[in-house]
């Protein structure tokens, strides 16, 4: 039996932390269009939380959490129609293994997803990916020859465009050499639920709210307020400065005091 439904919201119902004690956070909703970050020190259970979402946990994982779709638990022996699978997970370990050319590979995925305009979605996916990465991806390149940044960009673009999954989980993508603030701006245009596991303050503050994790349990949820939005603008400027220096260093420039001064002035204006 295939489940086929339009997702309006998902609900996370708290379970227990690593020591078996009840989580502080009881229950909260994620609605279409929400961007949420999961933050906390390494080993605090961030990845476990997105795994629970990914598997639509029904009190059957070590955390005992439950995920509801449109207020209903997902039946045990559910199978989603493979062409309409609602969740895409991109983790820090995720990779492409296929050595097919990019275009051909995306075509296979688009077919499985039941796309009717295969050529268009394939091109749109590559264009989207190229907005996120410094070095353009060429359709004829083998998947396994892509750089780390190109791979991450294509993983995201594929999940958003071809997969068109309503829920996209991104596990620590900030270290992957993609333009993260740009990525968030682009992603905001799509009405989806994006969940970021992140150590990055910019990504956390650009989210609508963030879940604070500790010892395997959800401690609290903080909604990004107006003051924090201003802080995120400042952080973005710092990011831009860093990106600017990265560009200079990559181009073989020597960073003199005058270059330093000039960069700060132009970037913070």
């Amino acid at each position: 039996m295939y489940i086929n439904m339009d997702i309006i919201k998902i609900t996370l119902i708290g379970g227990q932390g690593k020591d078996g004690s009840k989580e502080n956070v009881d229950r909260f909703d994620l609605k279409m269009g929400d961007i949420v970050s999961i933050v906390g020190p390494t080993g605090c259970g961030k990845t476990t939380l997105i795994n629970d979402i990914e598997l639509f946990a029904n009190r059957n994982t070590p955390s005992e959490r439950q995920i509801l779709i449109n207020n209903e638990p997902v039946p045990e022996n559910f199978t989603f129609d493979p062409s309409k699978h609602p969740i895409a997970l991109i983790s820090q370990h995720t990779n492409f293994l296929s050595d097919l050319p990019v275009g051909e590979f995306l075509t296979i995925h688009a077919k499985v997803r039941g796309s009717t305009e295969i050529g268009n979605v394939v091109n749109e996916t590559i264009e989207f990916a190229n907005k996120l990465t410094g070095e353009a991806i060429i359709k004829e390149t083998a998947m396994t020859e892509l750089s780390g940044g190109q791979t991450r960009s294509l993983l995201i673009a594929d999940a958003v465009v071809i997969g068109n999954s309503p829920i996209i989980l991104l596990d620590e993508i900030e270290n992957a050499g993609i333009h993260k603030t740009k990525a968030l701006e682009l992603l905001k245009q799509y009405e989806k639920i994006f969940v970021f596991v992140t150590h990055d303050p910019s990504i956390a503050l650009l989210s609508d709210f963030r879940i604070i994790m500790k010892a395997g349990a959800m401690q609290k949820i903080i909604t990004t307020n107006a003051e924090e939005r201003l802080a995120s603008d400042e952080l973005r400027k710092m990011d831009d400065i860093l990106i600017h220096f990265r560009t200079l260093i990559r181009a073989g420039e020597v960073i003199s005091e005058s270059v330093l001064k000039e960069s700060f002035e132009t970037q913070t204006q």
């Binding site: 493979p82 699978h85 990779n95 492409f96 499985v112 993983l155 594929d158």
Partner: peptide, 17 residues
């Protein structure tokens, strides 16, 4: 399942079925 791309995972699942 945590090691491969979403796309390959979907193709894999589709081909099993």
């Amino acid at each position: 399942i945590d090691l491969i791309s979403q796309a390959e995972r979907e193709v894999f699942r589709y081909r099993v079925l």
